[in-house]
């Protein structure tokens, strides 16, 4: 029995040695495979969620993301919708957004990219105000706070 335990232990230790030797040369491949696992994606609360639709105005593209209400097991009552302006953004931005595409405007967002200053005017009971608004490497991004039911 002791001999079996010893052999099993030493085999396990050598497997560890092999794993360590292949770990660094194979790290890129292992990481790529690991990165494709179903749970390896950034939660929409951080990524901003999928882009719902885009609108182009000259060299600037407006991207409106899907609203994010994600909770641990079910949706929360509060969330946000992310709006990005990509490309060559103007000094003054003023857009009326209908994020849920029901043909009723939900809020007006104004950004002075020079100052910088941002303001959000809710037009719907579901919009509660401006969350984050910041210059980014791709242009400008803002998150508007929402509640699920007005």
């Amino acid at each position: 029995m002791n001999k079996i335990k010893t052999t099993a232990g030493i085999t396990w230790a050598f497997l560890g040695l092999i794993l360590m030797i292949i770990l660094f040369p194979g790290l890129s491949g292992f990481s790529k495979s690991f990165g494709t696992l179903p749970f390896m994606k950034i939660n929409p609360r951080y990524s901003g969620g999928e882009v719902a639709f885009t609108q182009s105005a000259g060299a600037c593209t407006l991207a409106v993301h899907k609203p994010v209400f994600n909770g641990l097991v079910r949706d929360r009552n509060t969330g946000f919708v992310q709006v990005d302006w990509r490309g060559k953004i103007p000094d003054q931005i003023r857009d009326t957004i209908d994020y849920d595409n029901d043909n009723v405007p939900d809020f007006v967002i104004a950004v002075d990219t020079k100052k910088p200053a941002s303001d959000c005017c809710p037009l719907s009971g579901r919009v509660t105000g401006l969350g984050i608004s910041s210059r980014t490497s791709f242009g400008w991004a803002a998150r508007i706070n929402l509640r699920k039911t007005p």
Binding site: P38, F39, M40, K41, I42, N43, P44, R45, Y46, S47, N70, L72, V73
Partner: peptide
């Protein structure tokens, strides 16, 4: 495990 996503930016 529950949301199949990573809570980190």
């Amino acid at each position: 495990a529950l949301t199949k996503s990573i809570i980190f930016p």
